[in-house]
Design a protein around this nucleic acid. Sequence first.
DNA 1: CTTAAATTTTGCAATGACCCCAAAATTTAA
DNA 2: TTAAATTTTGGGGTCATTGCAAAATTTAAG
Lengths: 213, 213
Amino acid sequence: MAEGLRERKKRQVRQRISDMATALFLEHGFEAVTIAAVAEVADVSVNTVYNYFPAKEDLLFDREEEVVERASRLVRERGEGVSAVRAVLDRMRRDVAERNPYAGMDPGYARFLRIIQESPTLMARVLRMQGRMVDRLAATLREETGAAPEDPTPEFIAHQVIGMQNAVDRSIGRCHTAGSTPEETSAEVLRQIDVMESLLSDGVLNYAVKNTP
Amino acid sequence: MAEGLRERKKRQVRQRISDMATALFLEHGFEAVTIAAVAEVADVSVNTVYNYFPAKEDLLFDREEEVVERASRLVRERGEGVSAVRAVLDRMRRDVAERNPYAGMDPGYARFLRIIQESPTLMARVLRMQGRMVDRLAATLREETGAAPEDPTPEFIAHQVIGMQNAVDRSIGRCHTAGSTPEETSAEVLRQIDVMESLLSDGVLNYAVKNTP
DNA sequence: CTTAAATTTTGCAATGACCCCAAAATTTAA
DNA sequence: TTAAATTTTGGGGTCATTGCAAAATTTAAG
């Protein structure tokens, strides 16, 4: 599968821009770094930056689709006899237990969070992503259960699930900034997941159980 | 209580700017109307608009604080023996049953929603408000229950409550655009509130019951 | 009523994100 | 080797948002 030079270069340039930008943001903060500065460091024109990244925030939030899709995907790929909520919860527990950096279980993540929280623009983007996650998950739940369009259940459950992810994310951030060790963080967060699960009704916990085909 | 001329004029100018802006937005959409246009129609300078409204979105979302505070306030003012969730649910039902325009139970609200949905900027603001509502409500729940800072319960429950408000809001919008009568809308939404309530666990429904002093 | 202090409005000039277009530079394919 | 396709770039806007200082207005004091 000969991959043309053009494709390769594009990927490289894109990566270089993204990397340089992230480094600059982590060092000076998001608002303090202009697109022009990113372009200069990456040695391309401002327009080229925009060719690859539709908005400044995309320089930091690459992979947005992946993140937004995740909960939905976990549900779609859940095993037989597994409910939607359980599919997500199980994975959350596993990620936390295994210190999966993707799930934020990495002390360096704290700095990342700080940059985001200091920038209204980035906060707005995070919220938009959360909104999209809810929408995406709700749509999947509708497909999987065949719920009617007026049935508010899928959306409501999606809210609960994303709300849990959200709460976990915050806890992780809090632990990091509090200087907890990975072990402490992991244990603490697992405990919190238990608490939240105990607050879910059976109706939610057993929603959209995948039945044997 | 002599209220100086200055104060009165300020209020009038502010109101005029806000009114003119809202009218323009409803007619042409949010992005299509520049601040300069608002200033011109309101017969003030661009800087004066900024004197009163820190950002363009504030021209449409006046009263943001009131909206953000609402759920928190309902909880704080709940009666004895009433839980946090029930306080909010009861009021939601009442608003919908009474066709409270504040709660969006007004066909003209549909146009408003459309303007918002068509503008990324406004959508971002809405999401930010939702985030603030969750934070605000979670803080109140903490105060009311004395929950520990690491206890994720308040935040999680706040998410559920705001999620319900959210779902209800969407349903109302959907009914409006579907051309439902106020009666139909009201009945439909009340049914949905029932469905959502049935998905709440007892732990959530009975969280933060106000005990007799 | 006059004046000085306080406050508001305004004009002017920047900054920076983002968009559009057409001319170069580069890569691919014939 | 050349023509077609694609990328990069330069240049020129629009618009939100900010900072600053002059000008207009309101208030309070004399």
